[in-house]
Design a protein around this nucleic acid. Structure first.
Lengths: 108, 108
DNA sequence: ATATTAGGTAACCAATTGGTTACGGATTCG
DNA sequence: CGAATCCGTAACCAATTGGTTACCTAATAT
């Protein structure tokens, strides 16, 4: 059903709201795992697993600093998502235009 | 672990490569289910389930035409994804600039 | 009216997800 | 050294996913 490479998939990585929240948090700067985990209502190992998925998707990088592991965002892989979704921009704008025409009663 | 509203989540809907392929196919025009299913190496019920997830995420619309159900793309919800990912564009461009500086040996 | 076709849905199954607790390896502190 | 801290990972579990086959309804065709 799934090849193991799917675990490195960027779309899968950002599909989870917790992982998006982690990324959003890391935009304000790198953070050690415990500090990160404190912001969520789940245990540190759970957050650690999410970080592992983000790491395999190359969306975060781990920098070791003594006992700590500072996670930093490396958002480059998101560009693929941006490019994919951008190919739909023309479509949804056409749809909105159709809706506008419909609402305004323009039958052209 | 998941509230049922998560099933209507756009991120979850586009996380699956089959569902992205369905959307990509529907950009070339609406299609009945069987014709759609013929393009994939899975049974029609499986495709039908994927269409259900896309429908609940409001990414496709079903138009009934006799025995057929024509599925059409309604990509407006993708704008939310586009907006989320766009907030990272500045970050990955900064990262690429850092890499460029590093490769070119600029220590500034 | 009956047969055929399109397609949704239920029931079921194996694999995956997303959490937990328990443990272990590094690193720092006393 | 020994104790404490940071954090990854293994083992385990319930819920979800993503597929299947079987069956049903609605609509067309003969």
């Amino acid at each position: 059903m799934h090849r193991s490479a799917a675990h490195a998939d960027v779309y899968h990585a950002v599909a989870d709201p917790t992982r998006r929240a982690i990324l959003d948090r890391l935009r304000r700067g790198g953070s050690p795992v415990s500090e990160l985990a404190a912001g969520f209502r789940m245990t540190r190992p759970a957050v650690s697993k999410h970080l592992g998925i983000l790491r395999r998707a190359r969306l975060v990088r781990e920098r070791r600093d003594g006992r700590q592991r500072i996670y930093q965002i490396t958002p480059a892989p998101l560009e693929a998502v941006a490019q994919w979704v951008e190919t739909y921009r023309a479509f949804w704008q056409v749809n909105l235009l159709s809706l506008k025409r419909h609402v305004e009663g323009d039958q052209s």
